[in-house]
Design a protein around this nucleic acid. Structure first.
Ligand SMILES: [Mn+2]
Ligand SMILES: [Mn+2]
Ligand SMILES: [Zn+2]
Ligand SMILES: [Zn+2]
Lengths: 146, 146
DNA sequence: TAATAAACGCAACTCAGTTGCTTTAATGTG
DNA sequence: CACATTAAAGCAACTGAGTTGCGTTTATTA
């Protein structure tokens, strides 16, 4: 699959859905475009506000599940018990989901940003604890909120 | 304030509450003891099950808020959208809340452990992002679940 | 174009956490 | 100890994100 970052053309969006075994419905194309445009992350509620036709929230939740399972988006940490998603910038699929970078949460606007350049320190073991994955979350002020 | 780790005597528990401007009620003493005994973390629901008298959930939530504000406990990351707390092992207060260590989530039992020994990598800036705090969360299997 | 299965839409539900308000009990003072 | 004060407890009703079931629509495929 090709990398999905930056703004994409309609044709790209449709073919990305196809490549992930998702049907190219009006809503899902719009949703994928929304994710490709945003530099930070989205909640179900934010999506509902920004999408043209007011879709049912169930449709949004199920689309998010489907996108996540097929490796198009991934959950990002969030302070307020909301589920936030961001587009996978690396090439992920249902079988190999790579999200090996730090995340930044702005304490002002509560947005979460993927910091693709900052690598997460890896360790395998600590005492009797077997470590499989590591997550690094940074907090502070984003460029907008400084 | 003295360090609060390991099992504490009733007298200690009461005086710790006092030092944090909290009243020494039966329930709060029991709650503090529960936290001092557990090596991992607790949710409101887990507390409800383990505490002797079946207290109202509102009482539990308000006690958790009060304990957190006064620096006795701190939130720990949790996968399942639940709010988990663990006892502060360092000396925290309402004014200075230090929680400068990694956290480990067991993917098997969903428990969260404070890894006091693992330090979190610190950085101040990245591009236009101003970083104030960093959190390192590790996932894998805890000693019980290996 | 017809069959099929995915996606959508609606209603009802779940469940952690919250809010308002009254009652109980811990604390401090005389 | 007796009383006033105020934190904490208790109860009921509510909130809001996310879920489940099921019937309908629409994209895909043959
Ligand atoms: Mn990310
Ligand atoms: Mn901790
Ligand atoms: Zn911001
Ligand atoms: Zn475990």
């Amino acid at each position: 699959m090709k990398a999905v970052s930056g703004i994409l053309l309609m044709a790209d969006l449709a073919s990305i859905l196809q490549q992930h075994n998702l049907r190219k419905t009006k809503f899902r194309i719009e949703l994928l475009q929304l994710f490709s445009e945003t530099t930070s992350s989205l909640t179900a509620e934010e999506i509902k506000k920004r999408v043209g036709k007011t879709n049912d929230k169930v449709t949004i939740y199920r689309a998010l599940d489907a996108f996540e399972k097929s490796g198009l988006i991934h959950k990002v940490p969030d302070k307020s018990n909301l589920t936030r998603y961001a587009m996978c910038h690396t090439n992920c699929s249902a079988h190999a989901h790579i999200d090996n970078h730090a995340h930044f949460i702005c304490t002002e606007c509560n947005e979460t940003f993927c910091m693709d350049e900052i690598e997460v320190p890896k360790m395998k073991q600590h005492g009797d604890f077997q470590i499989k994955t590591s997550n690094l979350t940074l907090e502070g002020n984003c460029p907008k909120c400084i």
